[in-house]
Write a protein that binds this DNA or RNA. Structure first.
Lengths: 255, 255
DNA sequence: CGCTCTAACTTTGTCGGACAAAGGGACAGA
DNA sequence: TCTGTCCCTTTGTCCGACAAAGTTAGAGCG
């Protein structure tokens, strides 16, 4: 017969975790603002009354979580977690879970359509200028797959930004990061891929400028379907995302 | 006149980072599989030829990233990053970026609709059984806001799971985690909130079972609009997500 | 007076060694 | 089979130390 639950589990978190939690609390509840200095390791040793090694382990945890970072002179500051860094964690997780390109494609279809809808509704002049600038650069490198793929990735980040919805921006990023390396392969392998890609971007900017939601959705779908057709020429949609991820992740880590 | 580029930048990452990178590489490229033991700290000291403090800092990084964890006896294992843990990082970031409930609502509308569409198309019998079980538990606690809110959160996780799309599952989670605490407040404040919530779930399960996409989308929209109406009775949609986050994040950390 | 260069001083990254507490395993006894 | 005990390993934490890189305060100079 099971005993009646008389005691609660005791909180026995190790010291470095408590240090990390304590600092995180101060940042999340706003007592430490992004940009504020945290103090030197020695300061923290004094404040928490634990050894420097312990403090350093706690700092690593927060650093990895993107809550604090070291500036040029390696001093500690609170900071806003960068989306791209967090997204690369997620991308890594997706790779490890061996998600397929089909899942990626389906999710991206949803997310990119939502982005363009937001952009059509709320894009500012500045957003449009950024997009136009991106388009110009894309046209200049239409013959260089690597550079074009990078422009494409940036283009969709800018569309998401133009949606003025940061939740959406963040939600689409992990899938987008996994798309990116394949775009280069596709543009390389399919002759008319580059021009079609740029043309789609042009139509998308046009749709945003005219606030034409239908056109925006239509061209986003076409754009993604182009990707899909191109991809299916080189691999099956049911293949899991794997190696293509590696290099890109390494590059992202260097920031 | 600029010198010809004779040398490449040298990799001057600190040792603990190199340790973390090296282990991460082995995990991501599959040479170490999820579940495999990593070895003791002492083993790693020998293998990498650095001090144990250095190894420990590297381990903290990987642990925070969810790539390795310590089992009951605190031995190190590789593991698949848990979505919920990563998502709580993202939720935290969203809080710090002071996103508004409007952004949350809009993004969730997109993501939850996509989830139900996937679920209608691909839910298995097992998925349906889990959902039915959740519904039964929800009906039992319809008068207890906290328990009901928890059931609601789980319900939508199960719907996303039924979509068989892990990218979608992951993408919706951060926003969902921020929703969750408010559901309790709403169910508490609005008398008919609980029964309406359960009724919506019932219709959603029914739609999935009948593979009725229209009904699924319709009831998902209604369900979210209910949330919105309830929320607007207690606060403005343009308020940023803040304090409500804290407690939930703390609880999530304990796993 | 303002600028540069140098000599302290700080801070970080790393190292070596140390120890208590907790877990795991083997073994004896009931 | 279950329990208690002893021993060994591993982890979490601490102490002290040092080189390298960055910072600060002057000293010296124009």
């Amino acid at each position: 017969m099971p005993v009646a639950p008389l005691f609660r589990p005791i909180d026995v978190a190790p010291a470095y975790q408590k240090v990390a939690d304590a600092i995180e609390r101060e940042i999340v509840n706003g007592r430490i603002k992004p940009g504020d200095p945290i103090g030197t390791e020695h300061d923290l040793v004094r404040q928490f009354g634990v050894n420097r090694s312990t403090i350093r382990e706690g700092i690593r945890v927060l650093e990895e979580g993107g809550l604090i970072r070291r500036d040029s002179s390696r001093r500690l500051h609170a900071c806003l977690p960068r989306y791209s860094k967090l997204a690369s964690r997620l991308s890594r997780a997706l790779v490890l879970h061996e998600v397929t390109f089909r899942e990626l494609y389906e999710a991206s279809m949803t997310l990119e359509v939502a982005s363009i809808e937001g952009a059509v509704e709320r894009a500012s002049e500045e957003n449009l200028a950024e997009l136009a600038d991106n388009l110009a650069r894309s046209e200049a490198v239409v013959g260089h797959p690597a550079a074009l793929a990078e422009c494409d990735a940036e283009f969709h980040v800018l569309v998401a930004k133009a949606s003025q919805n940061r939740v959406l921006q963040l939600a689409r990023e992990p899938a987008a990061q996994l798309f990116y390396p394949t775009t280069e392969m596709i543009v390389t392998g399919v002759a008319e891929g580059g021009p079609r890609l740029v043309a789609a971007h042009r139509h998308l900017i046009d749709a945003i400028r005219r606030r034409d939601r239908e056109a925006g959705v239509l061209w986003t779908r076409r754009h993604l379907q182009d990707w899909r057709r191109g991809f299916e020429k080189i691999a099956s949609l049911d293949r899991s995302v794997e190696h293509m991820y590696m290099e890109h992740a390494q590059a992202a880590r260097r920031r």
